[in-house]
């Protein structure tokens, strides 16, 4: 019984999709990906970039004032004012310089710079996705 019906349906032609349908589907997907990037990723990374710049400014100010308070600049200037003494006691001089560095403030500042650069990198990459041409073949 069922063999009869299988033979029957074998006569029914399979609808052929239009030749350019695959291209249209892929273009739709590229478009969707671009829209999603425009809607979510690009603003997120742009906000991250702006936010990290805003954080970098006070972080730099903190580093600057911490360096001034720690006497690091004065110690460093000994290289120019008293180079012979510095060379004679170079190991103690280095330790003294390192101890006077405001390490935490510098680390915080570098983190904000890193975040800024990473946000910029991803924002540029997503911008390229948005601007990339559609497939035309």
């Amino acid at each position: 019984m069922l063999t009869n019906y299988e033979k029957l349906f074998a006569h029914l032609p399979m609808p052929e999709p239009p030749e350019d349908l695959l291209n249209k589907v892929m273009n739709r997907i590229y478009l969707e990906r671009r829209l999603w990037t425009l809607k979510w990723r690009l603003p997120s990374f742009a906000i991250g970039f702006i936010g990290s710049i805003m954080a970098a400014v006070p972080a730099f100010q903190v580093v600057h004032s911490a360096l001034a308070e720690s006497g690091f600049a004065q110690f460093l200037s000994l290289i120019f004012s008293d180079p012979r003494e510095v060379l004679a006691y170079w190991d103690s001089f280095i330790i003294m310089l390192l101890e006077s560095l405001p390490a935490i403030s510098i680390v915080v500042f570098l983190v904000t710079i890193f975040a800024m650069l990473e946000s910029l990198k991803y924002a540029v990459r997503d911008f390229r996705v948005v601007l990339s041409p559609l497939k035309t073949n």
Binding site: M14, P15, E16, P17, P18, L21, L22, K24, V25, R28, I29, E32
Partner: peptide
Amino acid sequence: YLKPIYGFVYRYLGDAHNAEDVTQDVFV
């Protein structure tokens, strides 16, 4: 899967023009 899905949609909806649009929606 383009041809089987297009065939399915075409037969479900009954017309080629809508089948093309809906097939794109399916793959998206």
